[in-house]
Simulated assay, not measured.
Amino acid sequence: MAPDDATVLIVDDEREVADVYALRLRDSYETETAYGGEDALAKIDDTVDVVLLDRRMPDISGDDVLEEIRDRGHSCRVIMITAVDPDFEILDMKFDDYLCKPVEKADLEQAIEQQLAARRYDERLSEYMNVTSKLALLEGEKTPERLADSDVESLRERAAELREELDDALESFDDIDTAFREIERTPG
């Protein structure tokens, strides 16, 4: 998925804040805004790739929105963007990243890119596991002759393609890890 194809939902009860983030990101991503927790829950669906979620909102807190997103089984990545200083309660929260306001545009874009890369990696890893488990099952149960008469070779080719993609992703992990550590997560 190219960044331009990614949809980012920006959730903040302060309209100006949500609109500024949308303005900063609109050249790189498809952006949508939600001005509170209820609005976010009404807009969240499987077309949303990344959610930028404020924690402190009057109607439904960001913590509750996050929990509902996970309960609904949405596969989007969630970045908490908030003025609430993190405490030990975050240990049980299922967000993917946590940034403290104010957030610079470069840090915001870098955090989104990392979440999109993680999502692509997760999808490919799941597909690789699916393909290789099918291959192992078929190769363990069928004779070489039966395998030769089947479409199993295309499965082998796909497994090799996915393995190469995953190897490439792992090689770039050091760069991603370095970039991840460079994001300013606390107000500077």
Rank of each mutant, 00 (worst) to 15 (best):
residue 72 R to D: 05
residue 120 R to N: 06
residue 48 V to E: 01
residue 67 E to P: 04
residue 174 D to A: 03
residue 108 L to Q: 10
residue 166 L to C: 08
residue 23 L to S: 07
residue 43 K to N: 00
residue 87 D to P: 09
residue 109 E to Q: 08
residue 85 D to L: 04
residue 118 A to D: 04
residue 170 L to N: 13
residue 60 I to P: 07
residue 99 L to Y: 10
residue 41 L to Q: 09
residue 128 Y to F: 12
residue 9 L to F: 02
residue 3 P to L: 09
residue 12 D to W: 15
residue 139 E to P: 06
residue 17 V to F: 12
residue 31 T to P: 05
residue 181 R to L: 11
residue 151 D to G: 13
residue 138 L to V: 08
residue 72 R to K: 15
residue 9 L to Y: 01
residue 174 D to I: 06
residue 141 E to L: 11
residue 35 Y to C: 07
residue 133 S to C: 06
residue 80 M to T: 08
residue 157 E to C: 12
residue 48 V to K: 01
residue 82 T to W: 07
residue 37 G to Q: 03
residue 113 E to F: 00
residue 162 L to F: 10
residue 162 L to T: 06
residue 35 Y to N: 10
residue 141 E to R: 13
residue 168 D to N: 05
residue 175 D to K: 01
residue 173 F to A: 13
residue 144 P to A: 11
residue 157 E to T: 12
residue 163 R to S: 06
residue 151 D to I: 06
residue 187 P to S: 11
residue 184 E to Q: 09
residue 187 P to I: 09
residue 12 D to H: 09
residue 158 R to L: 11
residue 163 R to V: 05
residue 161 E to F: 07
residue 134 K to F: 14
residue 96 D to F: 05
residue 16 E to P: 06
residue 126 S to L: 06
residue 138 L to E: 01
residue 40 A to G: 00
residue 17 V to H: 11
residue 174 D to Q: 14
residue 181 R to M: 14
residue 35 Y to S: 09
residue 4 D to E: 11
